[in-house]
Design a binder for these strands. Structure first.
Lengths: 174, 174
DNA sequence: CCCAGATGTCTTAGCGCTGAGATACATTGC
DNA sequence: GCAATGTATCTCAGCGCTAAGACATCTGGG
């Protein structure tokens, strides 16, 4: 019943008994789990000729209102990557004919990125496999555990997002 | 109370009502959380002249028995990165005088990586800040929630690790 | 009306990692 | 002994991302 993180905690207890390393029980597992999950998801993406970055953009467009178009700035905020990363992702997807870029009618600085028919077909085909993979990765949990996990992760996500936005902030002056 | 993932789930319910995307409630939050956590941890590492990769290696060595030495292969298994990544991490740390490499006495193919005094001083100085940062990131949870979260993540971690090792195989029954 | 600051997109250098493979040494079965 | 296989380390090209910054365009207060 001891995973890698349990061993790490036991080692720290010997080397640095002065430190309370208990937060690692959560953060350490979160990190390792994320790596394992990413690796598994990648297999599904590869099977459909995609990678995580491309899938992310196509899925975000697919979720948006028809005609499934967003600006690079919106994609950037949704994806948590920099603007340079979005530019390059779109370059790759555009070269493959999966998205199109056209100047925005309402904002001269902006661009409208839209799913092409080929892009929509590809993401619609990959999606069922993707969610099936996700479901398989969670198969070890009961439904109750899954729900509780989602709730707790949502709590953490909100607390970190707020911190990042400066809302309420840490404890410094408002 | 609605985080980004709740919005994503609501969008999929409209665009693809045929799909059960509920696994995203967990997997999606796991991914985003991991990104946010990594970004926060990085700030602490940077403050000590480190990055996540260097910290990982130094901390792994520090946890090992005195004289705090391991082989690249052991570091590779602990870190979940490829051998090429370990070689490069060690190149950087060795160039800074934080670790040393010497040929193994017992295995002609192998190398012994050891913390130098400077490396040990650096990791011992950074560690308290690091665990403090981790504790701050979890401050939104009660102790009970933290424990339950650690337990559930451990369950997932074990199930994915076993799958990877081929133990029990991919197919359900043993 | 106009300008200063905010915003949107793209460019580029540099970084760390992967994946494939090269090389050397170790181990096992015969 | 020795061939076949496995293990340990390193090399290197290629990839996607970040950070910093260049431009163009928008917006709101004098």
């Amino acid at each position: 019943m001891a995973d890698h993180v349990d061993l790490v905690l036991a080692q720290w207890a010997v080397r640095r008994p002065d430190l309370d390393v208990s937060p690692m029980a959560v953060i350490g597992r979160l990190s390792r789990l994320s790596r394992l999950v990413d690796a598994e998801l990648r297999r599904t993406f590869t099977a459909h000729g995609l990678d995580a970055a491309s899938f992310d953009v196509l899925a975000t467009l697919r979720r948006s209102d028809p005609p499934h178009s967003l600006t690079p700035a919106e994609l950037m905020r949704s994806s948590m990557v920099t603007s340079g990363a979005i530019t390059q992702r779109l370059d790759r997807l555009e070269a493959r004919g999966l998205v199109s870029r056209s100047p925005s009618a309402s904002d001269g600085r902006s661009v409208v990125v839209a799913l092409t028919d080929a892009g929509r077909d590809l993401i619609d085909e990959a999606l069922p496999d993707h969610v099936a993979t996700e479901a398989r990765l969670l198969a070890a949990l009961t439904e109750g555990e899954r729900d509780a996990l989602a709730t707790t992760l949502a709590t953490l996500l909100e607390s970190l997002s707020e911190e990042k936005d400066g809302k309420g902030g840490k404890d410094k002056k408002a």
